[in-house]
């Protein structure tokens, strides 16, 4: 009887614990990231599993056209892709903003911007905003470095690209590069979460 009560109690506690986890809390380093199938600027669907260059992982960056802080980082995002795609960590950019709120972030404008800047990586639209919500993205730009383990992608770093948005030449710490370099060297990521100022994600207003 006692055993029965204990197991009922444990079950109830487990249910409470699970249901208390707030929805949309987002990922923490160490969590398994869900894959996605999102439309790229070339009209094709892209997912982590079918991305040929993502042999060791991926640098997922929530970003957009309009945000001044995203713009300041465009060239640096291109540079990240150039440096790490050959090493198995390609950049995957995702625009999570509702174009109804920010016309500059529409799919057509994404195509234009990618052409202007010569993006070398997929630039995907998260139309339902489900991926941004699941990942816990709140800013643009907002980076999630994922490490591939078997078929899974594990979150290893969340946050800023580096420590100087304004001036790339004054950067002292390159957080994303440090994280990927750590992973490539088989080490633990030394700084797994770094915050920075950015634009809010423009959620759909229901």
């Amino acid at each position: 009887m006692n055993k029965f009560f204990v197991s009922v109690l444990l079950f109830v506690l487990a249910v409470i614990f699970v249901s208390n986890k707030p929805a949309g809390d987002g990922y923490k380093p160490g969590d398994k990231a869900r894959d996605f199938s999102l439309k790229n600027i070339d009209g094709k669907m892209v997912s982590l599993a079918t991305l040929p260059e993502a042999t060791k992982g991926a640098i997922v960056i929530f970003t957009c056209n309009h945000c001044p802080f995203s713009k300041m980082y465009e060239d640096r995002i291109i540079a990240l892709d150039a440096k790490y795609k050959p090493k198995g960590y390609p950049v995957v950019a995702i625009n999570p903003n509702d174009p109804a709120r920010v016309p500059d972030d529409s799919f057509e404008k994404m195509i234009e911007r990618a052409k202007e800047k010569g993006f070398t990586f997929p630039y995907l639209i998260d139309e339902t905003q489900e991926i941004a919500k699941t990942y816990g993205a709140t800013n643009t730009p907002h980076v999630f470095v994922l490490e591939k383990q078997g078929k899974d992608f594990i979150v290893r770093y969340i946050g800023a690209i580096d420590d100087n948005a304004k001036d790339a030449s004054q950067v002292k710490e390159r957080y994303v590069e440090q994280a990927v370099d750590n992973l490539l060297a088989g080490k633990k990521v030394s700084k797994a979460q770094v915050k920075a100022i950015g634009c809010t994600i423009k959620w759909k207003q229901s």
């Binding site: 800013n139 920075a196 950015g198 994600i201």
Partner: peptide, 8 residues
């Protein structure tokens, strides 16, 4: 709780 996005 803030990740740094504005407005806040």
């Amino acid at each position: 709780r803030w990740q740094g996005a504005i407005p806040m």
